[in-house]
């Protein structure tokens, strides 16, 4: 390839065009880093931590649900595996939750691949069904198991983590700020991975396989295999959030870490925000988490489930009018504003 072909990319991608598209994300990061300096209320910080947690979960989900073009509806299973693995290891064997987090991650990867193995070769509906059934099946089992071999699971009563030893090594803090920064760091990591995947061969193959599997196969892509890779990464990352959740709340039980509602909320946030895009999950969490917290706080007693009606309604409207999620019109607006300001600068 000669030099002229290399420069031929320039008319297609104006130099520096990557920067403005990254600018909002970086701005968001700067704001996120500064937030605990201003928000001193533990309640609001708690809500923000949950927002970041869901942004993280959705970003992890997006790797398979967005890029691979399938619909996983049982990611709570990985949250549960992560939470239980690290908690059991730390309670019974004194293993640092950080180590347990990684162990849980690999366990989830294994499970994710096992679910994907038979289902990725079939129509997407099977995969969606399999993930739901697996997650629910796992929850039912954990609810029934007090003891799994040497491991104490405590059935439906769940596990409490006594806050005996605080500190980073034990993943346990008296204040909320450390949790805030940990989940923020995890989110940055997940977004970074997503970004890298979207610009890699894997990302291209996933997108192609998700959109037109036959065409993708004819171009040398083993579609089922790349989906498995995506599933592996996604289930690993999702599992880490389970450990975070356990250490943050210090109490886990099957309904809190494995409920179908978690799986669906993740999927809804991704779909409304815009699946398959990097900003979509972040945007979705930013828009929807406050709705659900607000409605739970103010209408929790009088109108239970109101936020879910809103979620469902918003989801249908978004699918009808913006099937690629809300990130698309916003990105377009942003680009237009950018172009206009650039035009003004040229004229001025």
């Amino acid at each position: 390839m000669n030099a002229s072909t290399a420069t031929a990319t320039s008319p297609l991608r104006p130099p520096g065009s990557a920067w403005p598209s990254r600018a909002p994300l970086l701005l968001l990061l700067a704001v996120a880093l500064a937030v605990p300096l201003f928000v001193r209320s533990a309640t609001y910080l708690h809500i923000l931590i949950l927002l970041l947690l869901y942004a993280y979960l959705t970003t992890s989900w997006n790797l398979v649900g967005g890029f691979a073009g399938v619909l996983p509806l049982g990611h709570a299973a990985f949250v549960g595996i992560g939470a239980y693995t690290s908690t059991v290891l730390s309670l019974q064997y004194g293993v640092s939750p950080w180590v347990g987090m990684i162990v849980g991650g690999f366990l989830s990867t294994l499970v994710g691949v096992l679910i994907g193995l038979p289902t990725f070769k079939m129509r997407g509906a099977y995969f969606a069904l399999a993930t739901i059934a697996f997650a629910e099946g796992l929850r039912v089992m954990v609810e029934n198991i007090d003891r799994l071999g040497p491991f104490l699971l405590n059935g439906p009563r769940g596990l409490q983590i006594p806050p005996l030893e605080l500190g980073f090594g034990r993943f346990m803090f008296a204040e909320k700020e450390p949790y805030y920064y940990i989940i923020l760091a995890m989110l940055v990591l997940a977004v970074g991975i997503t970004w890298a995947v979207s610009r890699s061969k894997l990302g291209y193959c996933l997108a192609a396989g998700g959109e037109e599997p036959e065409a993708a196969q004819s171009l040398g892509i083993n579609v089922a295999r790349v989906k498995l890779v995506a599933m592996a990464i996604s289930s690993f990352l999702t599992s880490l959030a389970g450990t975070f959740w356990a250490q943050f709340t210090l109490y886990i039980h099957p309904k809190s870490v494995m409920s179908l509602d978690i799986s669906f909320e993740i999927a809804f946030i991704a779909l409304i925000g815009g699946r398959g895009s990097i900003a979509g999950p972040l945007l979705g969490a930013l828009l929807l988490r406050p709705v659900s917290d607000f409605s739970r706080i103010h209408f929790g007693d009088t109108l239970p489930g109101l936020h879910l009606v809103i979620f469902g309604g918003v989801l249908i409207l978004v699918m009808l009018y913006q099937p690629r999620g809300l990130q698309e019109p916003l990105t377009r607006l942003y680009r237009r504003a950018l172009a206009r300001s650039a035009g003004m600068r040229e004229r001025g």
Binding site: L12, Y204, C205, A207, A208, E211, E212, E214, A215, A216, L219, I221, R324
Partner: peptide
């Protein structure tokens, strides 16, 4: 069977 939501360049890059 184009990857319809993607650009022409993206299609060929795949």
């Amino acid at each position: 069977k184009p990857f319809a939501s993607r650009t022409v360049l993206y299609n060929v890059t795949v």
